[in-house]
Amino acid sequence: MRAVRGRSARVLVVVRYIVLAVLAVLFLMPFYVIVRNAFASSRLIAAAQWQWLPDQWNLDNITQLFTNSDVEMGASLWHSAVMAVVQTGLTVVVALLAGYALARNTHRAARILSALTIFTLMVPAAVTFIPTFVMTSALGWIDTFRGLIVPGMFSAFATYMFRQSFLGFPKELEEAALIDGANPWRTFWQVVVPNSMGIIGAVGTIIFIGSWNAFLWPMLVTRNGTRTVQVTLSQFMTSQLVNYPELFAGALVAVIPVLLVFLFLQRFLVQGVETTGLR
């Protein structure tokens, strides 16, 4: 009896690994396609029958992409980098402050603002893109970094996450600091923030990825001066000048930074999700 059970359990484990391996191949397939197309000739991509191996193992497509003056890949990457880094930094600071205040106060103003935050969480920025666009163009911020970054800086999501995280933050640490004569501002930066790097890393990673990958808002507000890499690639895809190998070389270049950030910070993300209120 026991032996039978052991064998069937072992078979089950093997089946489990086979299923996982098949799924892993499927999940990695799109990455393979990016690489295949980025190192292929146009002829190979449009060939009558799919070929698995690329035919151009060199950097020609990437060099061509960066010298293609109709695409302006270098500038687009710069715009995306500025947007993602600045927006992540500012969003995290704004949300940290608000999230902390909301976690430590229970008076009426705090409750109202918490409710407002949750309401904003439900009516996401994407739904109100027209009002925000109207405001941004009225401020004269079209095609500026301000217009690209500032309207998306006030993240109800990040504030909510920080609030939930601070609810579980031990008050004793802060109280000790306050007794030592520090004001709430200094306490916050010197005691609370350094002890919250996990959740900051998690939220920061999510914001960074969202910012780097944003499409709708950059498409609305950027023109030639601040166009981000996602918008550039999207427009290149449907433009008259599209060249598929160059397009996928662009996808490769655009996906690498965010993959690196992701791989390095994945740990925080997983921990952050496990420790906060997303449940």
């Binding site: 396609v33 990016i34 197309n37 990958n213 895809m237 996906v255």
Partner: peptide, 15 residues
């Protein structure tokens, strides 16, 4: 999760 919808759509649409 790290990949943008733009790039994913590119792969889905063209390949």
């Amino acid at each position: 999760t790290a990949v943008s919808y733009v790039i994913a759509a590119m792969i889905w649409r063209i390949s």
